[in-house]
Every structure is written in structure tokens, then in C-alpha cells.
Design a protein around this nucleic acid. Sequence first.
DNA 1: CAGTGGTCTAGACCACACT
DNA 2: GTGTGGTCTAGACCACTGA
Lengths: 263, 263
Amino acid sequence: MKSSPMSRSTLKKTPLRPSSRQALVAPAFSPLYRQIKELMVRALGAGEWAPGAAIPSESELAVRFGVSQGTVRKAIDEMAAENLLVRRQGKGTFVASHNDPRSFYRFLRLTPDDGKVRQARSEPLGCRADEADEAVARVLQIQAGDAVVVLERLLRFSGDPVVLDEIILPADIFGTLTLDMLKHSDRSLYSVFESQFGVRMIRAEERLRAVAADARASSLLEVPEGTPLLLVERVTYTYGDRPVEWRRGRYATAQYHYFNELG
Amino acid sequence: MKSSPMSRSTLKKTPLRPSSRQALVAPAFSPLYRQIKELMVRALGAGEWAPGAAIPSESELAVRFGVSQGTVRKAIDEMAAENLLVRRQGKGTFVASHNDPRSFYRFLRLTPDDGKVRQARSEPLGCRADEADEAVARVLQIQAGDAVVVLERLLRFSGDPVVLDEIILPADIFGTLTLDMLKHSDRSLYSVFESQFGVRMIRAEERLRAVAADARASSLLEVPEGTPLLLVERVTYTYGDRPVEWRRGRYATAQYHYFNELG
DNA sequence: CAGTGGTCTAGACCACACT
DNA sequence: GTGTGGTCTAGACCACTGA
């Protein structure tokens, strides 16, 4: 069959086309590959394909969605660009996972000034139940007063304390989190979250400022009180842009810096 | 002509294929579209297409390079993703430019806490000739002792001083820069650099730390001495990954923050 | 209207990984 | 060898812009 107008209407899904023109101010025309992408993201969110596992091959998906392989490919291209999937030539396409050593500290932008790689070690300090205040509720899109879990931890690079994190998590997902689950794990937090709670962190937003070290930060990071610290507030999102973590980190930047590339 | 082995050898450029297999440890196989991209980047660097101007249409380029339109498209796709080009449906593909109001402060990540947009105004303070010390020379890939231009400027948001920048530029490009060229310009620095010196800033790397305000920063940013400030060191690159600017900015982050998205 | 980029398809072949 | 993703082509049609 040559490409013809018919091929469009023989699609199993008959995806919405902008034929009903000028619907609204924002008609939100969506090309086929983007609709396929949405279906696949939904499948990911629903857990149809587990983190680390291979998804079906491009040709299988093409059959399943009733489109050509090229269209599936474009959908996967975008998802790979967003770090939702990882392509491996000759092997297949895999669901990205924080269990993959290559992305253990994917969101950590702190780098030693001398560039030498160092072993990162997470030292959990405390884990308590609390209620969300106004600010937390707004960020996590829950109600003020809702139960949350507050986790404190220290991140060390080859022994030196460098990052003090306060991590706030909604209890409806992370309510059963305990210090013990983190104490003897040499994996990253997100790796544990993914395995134990089935929540995959997809993307994050960080807001940075400079602040003075308070008493607690000063003692834990082993710097004089008042030392300028980098305050990094992070909101982390899972599938469907749902915020599932609010993190406030204090970075000691005497021998480390926050690295960022601007494109 | 159906796609056949012949179509490969009828290419005008007969681009290098990895047929001579296993050349070295890093054979650096380069697909056609990437070779096309390299040719186009070189054309951009050589000034064949000026910033803001339209490049030839995809089909013209396909003829010129002796490849299919789809291959040119893939090359342009990558360049658009790197902000080298801007596609505009129905109009053409254009060379990205800092003169475009949409990218006036493309590399400035500072955002007001309340989210309200503010008018940014650059106030040049000084401009002097100097010699590169060891550190500057290393970053700008020039020789220690080479001539540089040092520019100081204050960035205000609706009147409030927020960023104090010290900007170091190689004199072989920017030797003729004067305060007057900046004094009465309401455009961004990079916009001036592009128009006056023909240097387009492509990408940048930033390294952030927290430091205490020294006397000068304190007086210009109108904060007490010792106030924690965000120190942002930026190296900016033009075509061919050539570093052409080293900038050291001190950001007052009482009502503003540095925003970063992690993908 | 013609010209541009944007989408979609179908098919061929290449590179890579496993068995 | 078989199956996967990766590249390249050719052609059709859609959507947008501006004359």
C-alpha cells in the first residue's frame, strides 16, 4: 500500500486530528507521535513496564498502536531525551532506573573543585512524622495538616561532610519509611524510593541562594557558624508532573561547587 | 530510483563510512547527518549565515550537500536543540541571535521569589585593560600575560542592585571595547558583543558557591559586609567550543534565587 | 497562491549484542 | 544467525506564513 489518505483512517486508534478546525484559542493540535508518547508515559506511570526492564521493540509497539515504526521511534526519541527511557543499540529500549549505577546521583550537581571523583556516602540522621505546613502543602500539592515524613541526612564525600539535607515526603506514599531502610544501604535515596515505594523521580526544579550557617548546620558540616552556605531547595516530580519530594539542602562550598551547564 | 546500494555511492561528498572497519580504538564513526551538521556549524562559525538571518531551506541544503532532505532535517534538529538555529514553521530556519528579545538574558538564571517579571537594567561601572594571570589564561585558553579587557557592571532589577559582575574578555577580540559602547545601550551585553564584535555566545558553564560579601560588593549591592552572596563563575563559549569570556558574578539572593531545572 | 517547515509512512541497509 | 536499535532515502500530505 502506497502512502495514501486511506492509511490515515485505517489507524486502529483513529487519533484526534485537527480536522475540526479552530476549536478554541488553544486547539492544542497534537501530532500522532506525541499521542503515542502520552500513551506510553501513561503505561510507564501505571507500572506496565518496570524500571530497568525492556519495553517492547519498536516494531511491536508500532503494531500495538497501529502506526508506523518511524512514528513510534519519534515518540521514544522524545522520551529518551527526557530520560524516561534509555536506548541500547542491539539490545532494546529500557525504562530508566535510579538503580542503574550510572544515575545513582543523577540530580546531584555538586562537584569537587579539583575534579577528582570521590565516593559519596549518605548518612541518615533522623526520620520523623510531621504535618505539612502551608508552604509544604503548596509545594507538594497536598492539604495543610496532611501527614508527611521528614528525613534528615548528611552526605559525605570521602569522609568530609558536605551536604546537609532535610527531606519532606508525603506520608500517603512514604509513610512506612524508617531509618533502618536507609541505614545499611549503599544505594542512593532515589534508588531506595524506587525499589521500596515504586516511585520514580523523573525531574526536579532547584532554587539556589546563599545563606549563613545556623547552629545545627555549622556543627554537622563542621564549619563556623555564619559561614556562607549554598541553600538548594529542590522539588522533585514523578510521572504526570506530580510533586513527591521537597528537599532543602545546605551545601558547604569550600572545596566543592555546584556545576551547571547552560545550553 | 528505489533505495539501493547505489544511492550510497552516488553521494556527491561520498562521506567517510566506517567500511574500513576497526580503524582504531575510537574509530569515531560519524553518521551522515552529523557530518552535515559539522559542515553547517563550520558555515555558521565562518559567518556564512549571519545571526538572525534565514539559512537556506531544507531542500536547498539537501541538494547542496547531496543528501536527502530527511538527513538535513536531522542535522538541523540537533542544531535547533542546541539553540544554534531556530525553526519557524512556514517561514524558515534562522540563525539564533542574542539580538532577539526572546534571548536577551538567555543565560541569566536569576528569578524573583515572587515570580513577577521585572525590568533588568545593566549599569556598566568600569572597563580597563589588563594582563591575564595564570588562572584567567587557563580558562580562556590564552597565554599568561596576554592582554585582556576587564569589565565591571551592576545589574539592577527595577532599580534594586542584584548582580555585581566582573567580566574578563580576551583583548584580541574585544580590545576595542569601551564603556561608551555599553553606557547607552538597553540591550544585553551578549547582544552588543554579537553586533559589535561578531562573537556569538553559544553555551556556558557555571560554577556556583556561597561566599561572604567583601567591601566593594557590600557597598555596590547595598548589603552589609559579610552577607552571604551567591558566587557564579561563568565560562562562555562561542562556535567550536572556544572560550571567549570569564565572568565572576556576585548575586544578592535575599529576594531573588537562581533557578535550575534538572532533567 | 507558492514556499517553508512538520508529520507520517514504507522500505532498505548498517551497527551492535547475544546465542 | 537473529533480533534489536540506528541511519538514510523517497514521497505524500498537513500546517503555517506571507505575498
